[in-house]
Write a protein that binds this DNA or RNA. Structure first.
Length: 433
RNA sequence: UCCCCGAUAGCUCAGCUGGUAGAGCAUCCGGCUGUUAACCGGAUUGUCGUAGGUUCGAGUCCUACUCGGGGAGCCA
């Protein structure tokens, strides 16, 4: 008689049945003639109980010597037991050890960030990274679902680009046959081209910044989702960002409860993420900061990270700040027709003081104005000719934004550092493993 | 590029005004039929980041360097 395989995630469907689980030994404690094995199989973790009198003696002895992360399969009856973490346990009858692992470096005790990152290929197996990357998966799925339901087409932008989108200091240069090209730092310009073909598009892929940033909010390689919508104005794009964030949070709450609990996330903070998000202008935000003794903000400046924290901490949901001074923003953003020194842009600051999650704008759709800005910013016009074509042939008002995936995951999961929100983080001083 | 902090056992750390190195965990041995980071008893564990300097004597003080962490700027 063959025993069916089961996954720990779906054990509730197999109560009082005998199943075989295949996985790794996460932790073990022995009490003489009794072993408790915490088995993980990728889908979850469950306690397996081996009584000496219930299993083959060789298996009992062998399990007694197993080190952390040894691979094995265990067969037994699934029973509900209040004493077991998770509510279920396996009363083991038989099993097989696949490999005896020795001296696994990551113990159940505390470790430092440097050590864990140097062992990232193994650290992925630990509870916290496991939960976090499953939340990341749910965020990605929910984002694609959201845009698909709204008839957006996913049209990805290239990774290799011939030139900078804004300046050249933050680009990684790559040998490309007999010339050099750069790794993209934004898919936006290409997304604008795609939007003129499909109306509503988004691109989603890795993005590279050679900035020497060393903060909890920065990676040199991160994932960015960038929708671009023809005929949309600033207000449309703000509405879109708001709906998108609400959808993603709702889905994570539905599908990743267990993982949020592993991270000890305060669920009520996520349940508060509902429409409408507060929207204020740069000038209103500036007024708040000028009255705050904790801020060093000066009128006309962009907001620093501490300023963003002050602003976002005033609300229990994301804050949208619009109409920044044109001077501190990019050349492609459209000016406010009512006030030339302000542009039609929005930054979305996550709640709980996490800072910028989204940056977006209505795009400049007038050829002459765009030419003038390219000149003013000293950008190489030849490189932008294809982009200018979009204004020559049927230009329309259009808008878009960029969402930093890892920042979004960190915000939802309540995790401070973005390096935990991507499987293998790349930072200025770390590209291994 | 700038500012701040750190580097001692496999891991996390302690080591006072300078006097030849310590704990917990991991590992190994023994005990235990309900553990939740199990517990109890025993054992093993070191180029104190590197190179100079001061000193009778440096883990400790000084200088430089290397590596890493946090932050600023910039951004998502």
């Amino acid at each position: 008689m063959s025993v069916p395989f089961a996954t720990i995630e779906h054990l509730a469907d197999h109560v009082d049945e005998t199943v075989t689980l295949r996985g790794w030994l996460y932790n073990k404690s022995s009490k003489g003639k009794l072993h408790f094995v915490q088995l993980r199989d990728g889908s979850g973790m469950v306690q397996c109980v081996l009584f000496k009198k219930n299993v083959p003696e060789s298996l009992f002895d062998e399990v007694g010597t197993l080190g952390q992360e040894s691979s094995l399969s265990l067969t037994g009856k699934v029973v509900a037991d209040e004493r077991a973490p998770g509510g279920f346990e396996i009363q083991v009858e038989d099993g097989q050890v696949l490999q005896v692992a020795e001296d696994y470096p990551i113990t159940p005790k505390e470790h430092g960030a440097d050590f864990l990152l140097s062992k990232r290929h193994l650290w992925l197996r630990s509870r916290r990274p496991w939960a976090l990357l499953r939340i990341r998966d749910a965020v990605i799925f929910a984002l694609r679902e959201f845009f698909s339901e709204r008839d957006f087409v996913c049209v990805d932008s290239p990774m290799f680009t011939p030139n900078a989108c804004e300046g050249t200091s933050t680009l990684f240069e790559v040998d490309y046959f007999d010339r050099s090209v750069f790794l993209t730092q934004s898919g936006q310009l290409y997304a604008e081209a795609s939007a003129m073909a499909h109306g509503k598009v988004y691109c989603f892929g890795p993005t590279f910044r050679a900035e020497k940033s060393k903060t909890r909010r920065h990676l040199t390689e991160f994932w960015m989702l960038e929708p671009e919508v023809a005929f949309a104005d600033l207000r449309d794009i703000c509405d879109l960002a708001e709906d998108m964030l609400c959808h993603v949070v709702k889905r994570v709450l539905e599908r990743r409860r267990t993982e949020l609990e592993v991270l000890e996330r305060d669920i009520s903070k996520l349940e508060a993420i509902q429409k409408p998000f507060p929207r204020i202008t740069y000038d209103e935000a500036a007024q708040i900061l000028l009255e705050d003794p904790g801020s060093e903000f000066k009128p006309g400046d962009d907001f620093g990270a501490p300023d963003e924290t002050i602003l976002s901490n005033r609300h229990d949901r994301p804050l949208m700040v619009t109409h920044y001074p044109s001077e501190v923003k990019s050349f492609y953003m459209k000016r406010d027709p009512e006030r030339e020194d302000r542009c039609l842009c929005v930054d979305v600051l996550g709640s709980e003081g996490v800072g910028e999650l989204i940056g977006g704008s209505q795009r400049e759709d007038d050829l002459d104005l765009l030419l003038e800005r390219i000149r003013k910013h000293d950008l190489p016009r030849e490189a932008f000719e294809w982009f200018l074509d979009l204004r020559r042939y049927g230009t329309v008002p259009h808008s878009g934004f960029g969402l930093g995936l890892e920042r979004c995951v960190g915000w939802i999961a309540g995790v401070e550092h973005v390096r935990e929100c991507i499987p293998f983080p790349r930072t200025i001083y770390r590209v291994d493993p």
